[in-house]
Structure formats: structure tokens, C-alpha cells
Design a protein around this nucleic acid. Sequence first.
DNA 1: GTCTATACAAGGATAGAC
DNA 2: GTCTATCCTTGTATAGAC
Lengths: 223, 223
Amino acid sequence: MSQGDVPANPRVEGGNGATRERNEREILAAAERVFAAHGYRGASLADIAEQAGLPKSNVLYYMGSKRGLYVRLLERMMARWNALLDDISVDDDPAEVLEAFIRSKMQLSRRHPEGSRLFAAEILGGAPFLQEYLRGDLRDWVQARAAIFRQWAERGLMDPVDPVWLIFLIWSATQHYADFEAQVLGITDRESLSDADVEAITAFLTRVILKGCGVRPRTEPAV
Amino acid sequence: MSQGDVPANPRVEGGNGATRERNEREILAAAERVFAAHGYRGASLADIAEQAGLPKSNVLYYMGSKRGLYVRLLERMMARWNALLDDISVDDDPAEVLEAFIRSKMQLSRRHPEGSRLFAAEILGGAPFLQEYLRGDLRDWVQARAAIFRQWAERGLMDPVDPVWLIFLIWSATQHYADFEAQVLGITDRESLSDADVEAITAFLTRVILKGCGVRPRTEPAV
DNA sequence: GTCTATACAAGGATAGAC
DNA sequence: GTCTATCCTTGTATAGAC
């Protein structure tokens, strides 16, 4: 798997862009897995190179340094995260917004479980690379949502629960299925979670959290 | 901090038991922090020794091997966990049981945040050392609780939600404050969580989860 | 019983061959 | 542009001095 599959056109000016793109993609995917499983320090470039099917030093050739590779992966995950954060207004329907919030977060974890675990490992270690993000953009995002939740409560659209704890509840409950996947699969005796499982969990979380906060769902889900 | 503080009585038979006990305690505490922050591979014995205030090789002298030290810490955390798992019966009050469940889990995370993060890092990496535990004792424990939750639902004491997802919800929501402490503190602009914070979060989670599952709390908490 | 000195492998990174 | 050979540090573990 390390030779014979790099034909491409060898006379592109400045080298082969397609090979570079492909190799970078493989490295990023492999690195996300390894960093997710072992954290920043525990990950080794040898592991990453092996999983990417490339010689060891090519990882550094393409990525510059271990640190740079790690930061790039974190930024990619933050970008995915930001991509689904559309703005909400106090005039929106609380049930609709919270349900979409739970669903999109659940889908993000499902589509990028390694990215989710990479992020979790970073936070677990004290978030040395993400302090600025947490205390800046992310804090602002949370506070803006919290302000709207409070106004909904004032209007009687939901119970006056602390909106920040509510956001943490949604985050933790949804991320759990990616971050603690090994535990979930072990306890439920599964090899993997099916689409139906994820749909059932999403419905469960939506139901319990919305009801728990006194928000009426628009459609009554069958249990 | 590495000399002058080991007086003790030097003529105990077979050496000084007190020194050993103290050093082992220091090593276990330091190792729990380092393993929690960096995972099994990412942790180094040099880090652990430094944080324990001991020369590097004493860690191995006392603990035998890195692997043995890690397993010992995992077992200690499992023991703490088992210590608060008293049996419940279908005749107990659901509100009382669920509230005690949430509260005790929250306190465990609060008292042993490094242990909680150590466990989280182990699961994040695929639970290589805990597979047997997850698929054995822990699965049995969850299934036993789930059976009782189902009977409560049949008796109309709570909504017929999936009890396993409910247990995962409680676990994730409570552990979040230990495992993602860096994120919680960053977003809420705190240096640490006070006892009052923890009490407020516990009340919030109890309220939302019990209400969300259709369980009436015995005392109506002020919000 | 405790700690220093050391062995030997693995890690990140670089120079230079192809 | 890609990969092999190598440098130096760090890591785990052990032998032996105190």
C-alpha cells in the first residue's frame, strides 16, 4: 500500500498538486484519529505516518511540525463547529431552535467523531491551545444565546433555568456519544451506533430537555 | 522540597513504612494529574516524579512500571465509583433515587476531578484497559438499573423513556463539569467552581432531568 | 530501603540523496 | 517534489552505589 499507486502526471509545473492534496488529506485524517486517541503528547508521528500509509518524515515534510499539524486540526474542527452556528433571534420559536441545536450538535459529533474526541482531549488536558478561543469567540457565542434564552423565559416561553447550564447540558449530552463511544458500545453490546440509534437518541434528548425546561415541542414524538 | 523533610524513625523493622506510605500517596496523586491531562502514552514518569517531589526512578521503585501505576489508578477510581453504588428497588421513590444518583455522581466528579478525567481519557482512547469492566460489571449494573426504570414507567411513575439513554444523560451531564472544566471556567469567566455553583448546577440538572422524564420531585426547588 | 548512573529504545526534527 | 539516513532529546527501565 506504499508503492505503485502514485502515477498521476509527473510534469505539472512546480510539482504534482494532486499528490500533495491527496497526501495531506490522508495525513490529516490519520492524525485526527491518533491525536483523538492519545492526546497531543501521546500521539507519535510514526503512528500517524503509518496510518496514512506514508514514510515517517513525509508527515513533517507536508505539515512542518507536530505542533502545526495539531493546531491545523483544531482549527479545522472549530471551522466545522462555526459552520453550523447560525444566528437566532428572540422572535424564533424556542422549541424549534433548541431541537435544531440538539440535532445539529448530534450530527456534528456523528460525522466527525475523531474531531470531537480530539477537541475533548484538548479540553481534558486544560485546553493549552484553545484558551483564547474559549475565553473569546466561544464565550461571546454562549453569552449571546444565553441572553436570548433569558428573554424567552421572561416571556413565559420556557422555564427560567440558567441558560449557560442548559447549553452545557446539551453539549455534554450530545458529545457523549462520540467521546465516550467505547463505553456506550461496551455497555449496550453494540459494534457501532446505527442511524436509527442516533435518531432515537436525538429524539430522546430533545424530548427530555425540552420538557425539562418547560418548552412545548411543536410535534409530540412517539416514545 | 526534596530534602530535609524525611526524618521519621529510621529503625523500624524492614525499613520505614511511613515514608513508603507517604511517597506512594504523593506518587499516586501526581500520577493521577499527569495521566488525566495527557493520557496513558502522553504521561511521562519524569513529570510524575517532579510533581511528586521525588527523584525520577523512585516512581518505578515504588510502582514497578508505568503500566502498573496506570492500572492501579484506574482500579482506585473504579473502587470510588463502586463505593457509591448502593442497590435500589422498584419500590423506591423514583424522584428520590434519581436525585441521589445525580447528586452522588456530581460529588464524585467534584471530589476526584483528576480521577474523572483519567477515566475519560481512557475511554476517549478506546478503553484499552477497561474493555472487560465495561462489558462486564458496568454493563450488568446499567441493565439492572434500566430494568427498574422500566418498571417505574409501567407503573406510571415516570415517562417511558429509554432508561439506558437516561443513565448516559446523567453521566454525561455530571461528568462534564470535571472533564470539561477548562471549557466551563473559560466560558463562565471563573477561576474555579464554588460549592454554591456546584449546588446550583446539581439543582438545575435534577430539576430538568426529573421534569423531562415526567418524575415529580418531592420538594419543588426555587429557581 | 532509597537514590544515582546508565542502558537502550522511541520520539521529533533536519540534511541531503534521489 | 519525495523519501532515506541521521542527529539529538526524551522516555522507560534496570543495575548498582549509598
